[in-house]
Design a protein around this nucleic acid. Sequence first.
DNA 1: GATGAATGAGGATTCATTCAT
DNA 2: TATGAATGAATCCTCATTCAT
Lengths: 202, 202, 202, 202
Amino acid sequence: MPKVTEKYKEEKRMEIVRSAMQCFGQKGYEATTIDDIVRTSKVSKGAIYNYFSSKEEIYLQILHHQSVQFFKEVEEAFASRHSAKEKLAYLFERFEKESLTEERRTLMRLYTEFWLYSARQDALKKLMQERYDQFTSFVTSIIDEGKRSGEFKEACQSERVAQLFWALRDGNVLHFSLIGEEKGYKQMTRFMEQWFTTYIYK
Amino acid sequence: MPKVTEKYKEEKRMEIVRSAMQCFGQKGYEATTIDDIVRTSKVSKGAIYNYFSSKEEIYLQILHHQSVQFFKEVEEAFASRHSAKEKLAYLFERFEKESLTEERRTLMRLYTEFWLYSARQDALKKLMQERYDQFTSFVTSIIDEGKRSGEFKEACQSERVAQLFWALRDGNVLHFSLIGEEKGYKQMTRFMEQWFTTYIYK
Amino acid sequence: MPKVTEKYKEEKRMEIVRSAMQCFGQKGYEATTIDDIVRTSKVSKGAIYNYFSSKEEIYLQILHHQSVQFFKEVEEAFASRHSAKEKLAYLFERFEKESLTEERRTLMRLYTEFWLYSARQDALKKLMQERYDQFTSFVTSIIDEGKRSGEFKEACQSERVAQLFWALRDGNVLHFSLIGEEKGYKQMTRFMEQWFTTYIYK
Amino acid sequence: MPKVTEKYKEEKRMEIVRSAMQCFGQKGYEATTIDDIVRTSKVSKGAIYNYFSSKEEIYLQILHHQSVQFFKEVEEAFASRHSAKEKLAYLFERFEKESLTEERRTLMRLYTEFWLYSARQDALKKLMQERYDQFTSFVTSIIDEGKRSGEFKEACQSERVAQLFWALRDGNVLHFSLIGEEKGYKQMTRFMEQWFTTYIYK
DNA sequence: GATGAATGAGGATTCATTCAT
DNA sequence: TATGAATGAATCCTCATTCAT
């Protein structure tokens, strides 16, 4: 079955990623076995290793993919959102949507788990720190933009605020993954937004 | 009438818990082996199973222990802190201290890991949800108290604010466990406090 | 009438053999994977199985090839060497040369490995025993020739001497593959020759 | 089953070594699986790893054990053998005996295999080179002793001769492992001895 | 109660071989 | 013929738990 198109390979790759994402999200990275992924994906064990060199690499690819996807989508969204306020509003909107499907929630769990896993592996630690910087800088620049345009208070410390933004968001994700909808967590995002904007809007 | 006193047994139990806490914090729950705990505690493998029925039970006991300890310490602290503001300030103070030693940070990592682990085990899920309620209620009641005493704005929704309080805190812990001191995370707690009080103080 | 000439096929075959030889020599038979050979040879995995039915068959073909090659070269060399002394000298000369390049040493390692591998496989065992007989007979006949021509002592037992000749040679190869040049193994061949001839020359 | 005597552990260890030796000898190091050893030894898989950290370690221990055993036995034997001639004779006597049982032959195969395996692993290479030096020095010193005592020719180069001694011996072992008794290999040792002594005896 | 050796199912990964294209 | 993706049994090693002493 040779000379397969790049598209075919990419799809196979995604099939593995999709299944792995599901398993990791449900059982956690360490608790997920390759056989779980095999069962979920209907791809053979050997085939998985044709596409990824290790279980960890699958994990990493998912993460990378998420990151890329996030920035791609955001960029698209920002094409039609020119003020800092609108941009910020978009981010909160996204977060709200993320809580709607189980698939998304699974992803969120996975994402948080990765922080901890990385914190214990020096090689990954650096990678995740860079990722953190990337996400923080991104929000920082929106705040700065808002300050320049007169939308946001000049006094607020952009970087600190950006860090707080992600802490708030990730803490929320963490709790939400456990608490689910019972405590009206969907509405929490709205509340967070309101709280957040109160502080930085002029 | 046992040869071995209750006190002796309690101490042994604590020795195991202490060592397990260290191991779990450092390597994570799944990555920690019973042998790791044996090595760290100088308690024999068989003995561990005299005190705990499984690895998971140790995990759970630690969680319980942490919870009890937190409320015990807080209660003591509150004996001399009568206003809601002072009480809130105490909590932030605590958080700040927690980031100082590696041991504490280890604990924080462990604490966050619990969330994820529990989110995937129905039996634990309930337990953790109760725990979450307990912590949330606790803060809710402080806010309510502040509202009654005229310290805090009446308009703020106590429970939402309490939830946000813990989201902020846990998100911070999560990031801190990875980022460490490099990004001045110690000061983040201060910043969080300031931000938080700005919103609810009258 | 095949599209592909016999010559083309033979070349492909040789390309595989060459690469396999290199891999087997470097990593050993068991440690060498088909993918190693694919990488080294630039022949596809499927193609290898068009020319050889299994990894073991490649191994065997190399062995055969070596054997044929040895006798072919020796025959050529003997065309201009008519005395038993000269013939013997030629063999030692060969051995000496063999130690000069890493490629040759790799081959020697491979050659020794064959013995062991074969010793454990009844089917091969017979083959290798025949090979051994062939090589032994070959030297035996040179000794006999030397005895007849008056070059060598009549008293020496030709077959025993031939066996000793190969034992000496293969032991040397074995040690050399590990020890390398450090212990002046190149000179060992000279020494062996001198020792050997002292015993059998008249 | 705790607090087991050192003797018990040593016996278990030996049981594993014995079985491993048998398997390695029969199938070769790489072809032998841990399960083979489990089957042969009636020791559980986990237990094996309580005594040895890896398959390779078992291999190494066997080798070390052989080495130690050799020198111990030789030392004992030399207590009553004072001339260099007697000492040399003892070594040949040993070699002759070694070929008698299948167990011994298995060991010889194993021993030779190790040369090749080591030649491909830098860490082991050094170890084996040291081992080679040890064995070579040992024979060198016997030759030197013989020269001093007037038993052996002063002209012979002790170290070269020692190297040749082992090459001869190992080459013989290599062939014998394949050829077996058919070619009267047992008598080869005698022949080797005669040949060898002819050269160095005064 | 304490000990730590034993167990063996289970995990990640490899690899010779096959076979659809 | 050539290709190289797919297969899955086989490999080494781990580890929670048990239990004889």
